[in-house]
Structures are given as C-alpha cells and as structure tokens.
Design a protein around this nucleic acid. Structure first.
Length: 482
RNA sequence: GUCCCCAUCGUCUAGCCUGGCCUAGGACACCGGCCUUUCACGCCGGCGACAGGGGUUCAAAUCCCCUUGGGGACGCCA
C-alpha cells in the first residue's frame, strides 16, 4: 500500500513537471450531435490546456465508418465554436490515419504483443454466454493466442493481454485505480475489414499528438487499463488520465433525450447565451469556493482538476435559467441586440436604437432571448396594429377609466418636457387633484400602452421608450375602444 | 452475473487529502416578509444534508473496515 502511494506520488510529480507543455484533446465521434455532457467534458479539457498555456487539439474519431457522418462532424464543430472553445492546429480525422495504425499493429504482432485470430463473432458470443452462465465476466477465451496463424480473410488482430499482474494508473479526478489483468480480455486491435478499433487508435493518436493529459468521460474508465497496456507494449510513456463523471437527468438516470437532454445547439435555439451555458456546465462538477458566476478569463485563470468533483451530477434546468438571467442582467443592452433579434418574428423591422431602449426593461424579467423577444411584442407594432386583450378591455376600461385617460392624455400632450419626472408629476398630480389611488389609473394606462395589463417596465419607462407621439397615439386609440 | 467507480440539504456544491475553527457554509429551487404603478429585479428571513453500522482517536463529515444504495463497463461502438 505504502509502495503504491509512493508510485502514485511520483506519477503526480511527473504530471506537474509537464504542466508547461500541456497538451489536451477532445475526441468526439461524429455519430451524433455534441451532447451537453460531451460539451462539459470538452470544456474541462479545453480549460486545462488554456489554464496551463498549453495546446488543445480536436480529433474526430470516425473509425466506425458505418455510423460516422460529415453532417455530425460539422454540427460538432458548430457547437464548439458557439461555446467559444477554440482548438490548436489542424482538425484531425482518424479515418485518414489507418496506415499509421496498421503499422503499429504490425509492430505489436512482431514483438509478440498481438496475434491473429480466426474466431468468428458467433464463436466469441458463445464464449461470453458460457462465461456469464458460470458467473464469470464475459470475455474472449484466448483460444487463438498460441495458434500462431497469420493474416487472412475475416481474421482480426487481438492484443495479448498479460495473464498475470495488475495494471494501475493514478486518475487526476478519481485517484488510484487498479485492475487485475486477468479481468481484461484480448481486445481486438484490427477488425476483419482492416480498420483499427477505438482502443488502438486512441493510444496511437494520443501518443503521436503528444497528449499529456487525457480528459474524457468516466464511461471510459474501464478502457483505460487496456490502453495503458498498449502504451507499455509499444514502449511509450503513459499520459495522465482524468475521468469526468457523467451528467444525470432529474431521475438520476443517464441523461437522455427523454429528459430534454439536448444537443448543445438546441440550447441556442431555446435562447440561452453561450457564456451562460459554459458557466453552468463548468460549475456543474467543478467549484471554486462559493463563487457561482465566472467570466471566461476567470475560468481559465482559476480552473484546476483538484476541484473537479468525482461523483455524477444532476442537470438542473432551473439553475441554468438562473445563470442565464444573471448574464442577461449583467450585459450592456447593446450586446444583447444580435442574440435577441434572431428570436423576433420573421420580417420584424426594428432599429437597433429602439431595441437598445427596450432591452433594459426586459433584462430583469427575461430568462432567455426568446422570452425577451416575446415580451416586447407590443413595442414592435404601431398604435393601429396593437392588439388589445379583449377581456381586460371590457373589465378595465370603465367609463371612469376612460375619463381619466382622456384627462391624462391631454396633460401629456401639453407636456413639453416628456421626462420621467414630468410624467410622474402629471400622474401624481392628477391623482391628488381627484383624490384617487394609483389603482384607478394603473391598469387603464398600462392597457392603453401595451394592450395588456401585465408588461415589462414601469408606466413612465414604457412611455419614454415609446416616445411622446406613440404614447399619445395609443392613449387616444384606447379611448375610442370603449 | 463479474469487474470498476461513486455517496454532504430536493439539486449544484464548500469542508475531506493535511481529523478539532462544523451547533456543517454558499448557490438554485421552495416557503414567508419587505420594496412596489403590473410583472419582475432587489433586500430580509425560513425550510433543509454528512446513507447505515462498526472501528481508530481525547476528538471524525473528515482516517480504516463492512453493509446498503446508485452509476458505469463487459462489442469486429466510441
């Protein structure tokens, strides 16, 4: 035990020494969109590289040519860009490196670390079933290990996993992990169609790309000892590994579509800000004391793997909403214009200047761009196009209310200043004069201005944004409704 | 089934490595109040957790063991 701790410690040291030339990577397979969980893993990996001033490389794992598509590759790249994760160097495709993988497979055969196998899938399935029945771990039984057969039709190459001993590595997140080699079976390195398998390709790529820290989902933990064995068989240094726990749905099951577990780009479609999604995702599973909101620069400055949690976490949309609100409130109104525009009804024509005046009223109330766009609908039409909430027209526009509106309209018309102060003076003065409570005019005026009795903004703010002419036009039109 | 991983409020977490400052802190959510011309924002307060059991120790959320619970992997997928 003590010996092992010493070993772990030396691993830690070698990790620290290489900090100055950190190279991390993200290696998605283009068989689907970039999922929120994958995005978080990518973020951790990206942050680790940026924090250390190192490199972050992106590799497309498309060795499974049946399921990989260019569309998904493009979609993944789009998501990476949206979240602001930039990568260094050329994008790499595993499908372009088959010759390289095969040269290392040949080397492993030459050095006695791998062998050809002519067992069929059916035979192997039978072995697994048998093992399962005998309450053992299902695995290939190694029957071709010593056959010494050569290449041939429908043959695969398998790794000759040591039968004795154990394989350990010191995970950056989970700590020391050890597996008995006997638990591992002789994995396939080269498929019968000549394509390399994941475990072989990953090792060759990570080594040739100089990756120093492999950050990936913890569903890969079981693959890691196998990969360590390949590194050693090839005589290569083993990088450090960090296995990020997965994200769960509210039912604590693996996040999936039925939870609304969506691809990254769907969060854009729902109106979230990329910075907020990044902030939420990083904070899910990582912490820096009690701090909740981090700018991208802060994240880069503060990120470390020590504070990554080692248990799975539940995705909480409510908290994402809260983070998104915080970002909306913190932004300068002008910064929100482009994002909000994309959610406006098609064909809406509105000047930036006008939106910039509207947005401050929306900021404390909206959780996302879509809500912002929805909330300000009444601002974007002219007085004669404004739709009124019929029920409230009947309820609120009593004969008395109409009288109030008439008198207030006249006073506003005569007000040359048209400022928050002057408008307040007009309304308060009118109420005092008539000995009324604000209730008497609050709803009628709001209804006149917005067509509804609930809207963002105080009455005077609303008027100021609309401008004097539009305010009067709306008031006057409302008077004719009753 | 076998192996691996994990375990603090409903949720995200601080604290754990380097036991005592923890009558366990913060945030989201929830509930109440204040503010207020709607709805919000904001402010104040409340609810609420060390999975269980054994050890070790003067002292354990923190170290060790067991149990339980959850998750993952077991592919010519990645």
């Amino acid at each position: 035990m003590r010996l092992f701790q010493l070993y772990a410690f030396s691993q830690q040291l070698s990790g620290d020494f290489s900090m100055s030339n950190t190279i991390t990577r993200f290696a998605p397979s283009p068989t689907g969109h970039l999922h929120i969980g994958g995005a978080r893993t990518a973020l951790f990996s990206w942050l680790l590289a940026r924090h250390n001033g190192g490199k972050f490389v992106l590799r497309i794992e498309d060795t499974d040519q049946k399921r990989s598509t260019q569309e998904y590759t493009d979609a993944i790249l789009e998501s990476m860009k949206w979240l602001g994760m930039d990568w260094d160097g050329e994008l790499m495709y595993q499908s372009e490196r088959f010759d390289l993988y095969n040269s290392y497979i040949d080397k492993l055969i030459e050095t006695g670390h791998a062998y050809w196998c002519d067992c069929t899938s059916e035979q192997v399935d039978a072995m697994r079933e048998k093992a399962m029945k005998e309450k053992r771990k299902p695995k290939y039984d190694g029957s071709c290990r010593e056959k010494n057969i050569g290449p041939g039709e429908n043959r695969v190459v398998r790794f000759k996993t040591p039968i004795e001993g154990r394989t350990s590595f010191n995970d950056m997140i989970k700590g020391p992990i050890t597996v008995e080699n006997i638990e591992l079976d002789d994995m396939i390195l080269r498929r019968s169609d000549g394509a390399p398998t994941y475990n072989l390709a990953v090792v060759v790529d990570d080594h040739t790309m100089g990756v120093t820290q492999v950050v990936r989902g913890d569903d890969h933990i079981n693959n890691t000892p196998r990969q360590v064995l390949i590194y050693k068989a090839l005589g290569w240094d083993v990088p450090r590994f960090g296995h990020v726990p997965m994200i769960l749905g509210p039912d604590k099951k693996k996040l999936s579509k039925r939870h609304g577990a969506l691809s990254v780009m769907e969060y854009q479609k729902m109106g979230y800000l990329p910075e907020a999604v990044v902030n939420y995702l990083v904070r899910l599973g990582w912490s820096h004391g009690d701090q909740e909101i981090f700018s991208k620069d802060e994240l880069i400055e503060l990120f470390n793997t020590e504070h990554l949690g080692n248990s799975a976490s539940v995705f909480d949309t409510k908290k994402l909403d809260w983070v998104n609100c915080e970002y909306i409130k913190a932004k300068a109104p002008a910064e929100l214009i482009p994002g909000m525009r994309s959610f406006l009804p098609e064909g809406t024509e509105v000047a930036d200047e006008y939106l910039e005046k509207i947005i401050p009223l929306l900021q404390p109330r909206a959780t996302n761009y879509k809500e912002m766009a929805d909330m300000c609908d009444f601002f974007l039409v002219s007085a004669d196009e404004l739709k009124y909430d019929e029920k409230n027209v009947e309820k609120v526009l009593t004969p008395e209310a109409i009288d109030h509106l008439k008198e207030i309209t006249a006073k506003i018309e005569a007000d040359s200043e048209f400022s928050h102060d002057s408008l307040e003076a007009i309304h308060k003065g009118y109420l005092e004069e008539k000995e009324l409570k604000f209730k008497a005019i609050g709803q009628p005026v709001r209804l006149a201005l917005c067509g509804k009795i609930q809207s963002p903004g105080g009455l005077y703010d609303l008027m100021l944004v609309l401008g004097k002419d539009e305010t009067l036009a709306r008031m006057k039109k409302t008077i004719t409704l009753a």
